[in-house]
Design a protein around this nucleic acid. Structure first.
Lengths: 343, 343
DNA sequence: CGCGCAACCGAAAGCGCTTTGGATATCCGC
DNA sequence: GCGGATATCCAAAGCGCTTTCGGTTGCGCG
């Protein structure tokens, strides 16, 4: 059933039927009802391909997800972020098209999206320090929102981020308040903008008290369980072992816990752990008292908000860029306690 | 730069330019070169919207991912599966459009995809036992591939699956060979087809030796770390504790390990654990001797193969349905050992 | 009664490509 | 030198919608 047939059946022009269905004003309410009725009856739904060409809008948002350089890793936060974003798109009748691409091909993909008009906007994931994508997208004139930030010129584009610096500052302060002085930071890859901010927060908290973190206690790598385990294992075995860990992700923290328990130590009593928790659904803890003390921020919610922001921008591209900074919630769980009194 | 302008600049008709670019035969090789050159020079790329309408092909594949009923969980295997599939699509010039949707709305989404012609084919995820989606899709006449299977009428549609029954049968046999007699199964939700198959394999292995598993040792739930931990914790505390666990996912296994170690037991010596490993990238272990004994099967590879299969079917819809059964690799790691000799 | 103004509806022109159905020119064998 | 391949190109008709620009009607009003 296509528009032509439907309008023939109704004895109306395609124009009127189209208008009736799309809620335009100048069509009699009675005929609109007739049209709607007939459309329902024949299960008519306009061909998206034709509609897109006619309107010039692709009714789609592109998410281009970089597959990490080192291993071909897919960061699990994407799943949740996308789930949140997808909800917003579905509500607005937009498609979400995903493009997983190696760093090398990213620029090509963006250009292609722009040229072929396959998307109305783009969500930028995992910005790196000094990321060139923002400039490229501005140049292409394609609406976009960055999940995260790139340090330079934050006002010139739209982004949504969690306050990573603040979150890690607070986590560090908590541990310092508990008397810890040797606090390890298991960060993500420091080419990532968020990782730099986290490290900055960690350092600022130290400096505010005239302390200086031991460089040997700062690690940086792709956020896997293995990384958490091996790094914690190594650090705990050293002469100047830390009494506390801050982990950049729940998965790292799980590895840290394993290393701690393997040494016969108890997390929360002997060694404290604070983790950043992206509230990934499959780690969601229904426990009343959470295992891990964490700085929590729902990636899924971020996805939804970022998507809504992007849709707004697509609808009104000429307005000023929007920014939104979410605060992480610091929740104290069982994994932190006072620093063991040292001899 | 649109086709019209490009052809004007070349002094050729749109027809010829279009043909030249799309590799049609009846165009002089010289002029084809001229056209290609000009296209490169002006960075011409055909408008996807127009092309789609003209060809009637959406050049897109839909992945509709059910967000689990219980919690709003996003199964992390999707990330890897999609990464693999995305590769195949990119190579073929197809878009991947993602639709995350509650169980209730699935049928609506499928119908909508079919009616509005937004996709050329659909990947069906996470089939449940007695899933009605296959019948619906067959009815709609939309090409599709199922990742997994639904037990009835396996020959009437295309699917790609791992041999879950066999994998769990072998895992169970391994443990039985090691002398274990009380083997717990921490399965996924048994409304999922794959979970039923895994359970069947587990049971068949027992029955082949005239054994009967204790129903109290079989659990089934959403595959989270918490579930693994709590269930193992409970079972280990009972009078008739298991000496081995089979976990349906790595994340469950991590929870099991935690429960084991928390009791002061050592995994691999006191309690054995075999896990099914979907080879998710962020759990990828670069260790030479893997921690967990596991039945391993790369979800990412499955995604790629399933996508290629689907593209084949889209290209030739009238051919017979394809099926492909992947075998999991059983790798012995450090988490299994002989059953402790009981008094 | 004639004019202006709403209110309602339609014909037709796109949207930017692909594809059909010829045209034209060249070339071959006989 | 002629019928018929063969190679090369083009005009124009879609694809199924939206949207522009008018065209009718009906009605209030001077």
């Amino acid at each position: 059933m296509k528009l032509k047939e439907l309008s023939a059946k109704l004895g109306l022009s395609q124009t009127t039927v189209s208008r009736a269905l799309n809620g335009y004003p100048d069509v009699n309410e009675d005929t609109r009802q007739r049209v709607l009725e007939a459309a329902r009856l024949h299960d008519y739904r306009p061909d998206a391909l034709a509609r897109r060409l006619a309107t010039g809008r692709a009714m789609a948002i592109g998410h281009v997800i970089p597959t990490s350089t080192k291993h071909e890793m897919v960061n699990p936060v994407f799943a949740d972020f996308i789930a949140g974003a997808g909800e917003a798109y579905a509500k607005a009748g937009y498609d979400m098209i995903l493009s997983m691409v190696g760093d090398a091909d990213e620029a090509r993909v963006y250009r292609d999206f722009a040229k072929t008009r396959r998307v109305d906007g783009i969500m930028v994931h995992a910005p790196r320090t000094g990321d060139t994508r923002i400039a490229l997208l501005q140049d292409l004139g394609l609406p976009f929102v960055v999940h995260g930030r790139v340090s330079a010129e934050e006002a010139s584009y739209s982004w949504l981020d969690v306050n990573n610096r603040r979150a890690f500052q607070r986590a560090t302060e908590l541990l310092l308040d508990l008397g810890h002085r040797r606090i390890a930071l298991l960060n993500g890859l420091e080419e990532m903008d968020f990782a730099m901010r986290r490290r900055a927060g960690y350092q600022e908290a130290h400096e505010a008290r005239g302390l200086k973190p031991d460089a040997a206690l700062i690690a940086s790598d792709e956020m896997t369980e293995q990384y958490g385990y091996h790094t914690a294992h190594r650090m705990l075995a050293s002469d100047a072992a830390p009494t506390a860990f801050i982990a950049s992700s729940m998965i790292i923290a799980i590895g840290v816990r394993r290393a701690i328990e393997e040494r016969g130590l108890q997390m929360g009593r002997d060694i404290s752990v604070v983790s950043h928790d992206d509230a990934l659904s499959y780690f969601h803890t229904p426990d009343t008292v959470p295992i891990f003390t964490s700085t929590r921020s729902s990636v899924r919610e971020a996805g939804q908000l970022a998507a809504e922001m992007l849709l707004d921008i697509v609808a009104a591209p000429e307005t000023a860029p929007r920014q939104r900074l979410l605060e992480a919630i610091l929740t104290v769980g069982q994994s932190t306690g006072p620093a063991p009194s040292t001899g």
